[in-house]
Amino acid sequence: MIFPLCFALFVVGLYCALTKRNVIKIVIGLAIMEYAVNLFLVLLGYKKGITLADAQAPIIEPVTNLDDFFMKAVDPLPQALVLTSIVIGLGVTALAIAICIRLYQRYGTFDISEMRRLKG
């Protein structure tokens, strides 16, 4: 149930990016897709225990028993890579928004069907 919901979030973003005519809406669709993929990767690395407290963040405290920690800690590798991915996503989205602002200055609208001079 959880993975299909995450997939549905991705499809909502894809639908938004494919059908909307407003460039800001297209950027929003791209951002939603990026969030869905990030969340999916972190969901894949979760290690479930009996209760909610049985899963542990991969942080070692002075009181932590190391063998216990190895059994309980969630996968640190997806978290590290998703951390990179979030920051890169911010850079890409900022670039897209800059292009949107420039297009508005040039054409006076956000509607992609009115930006005729882009053709050819």
Binding site: P58, L83, L90, I97
Partner: peptide, 27 residues
């Protein structure tokens, strides 16, 4: 992310989301 035991990601996500909202509202 907080419930999935990824506190680092939660902090970064809050910071990134705030910056993104400011940029989008500016646009």
């Amino acid at each position: 992310f907080l419930f999935l035991q990824a506190p680092d990601l939660a902090i970064v996500q809050i910071a990134v989301e705030t910056v993104l909202l400011v940029l989008l509202i500016r646009a």
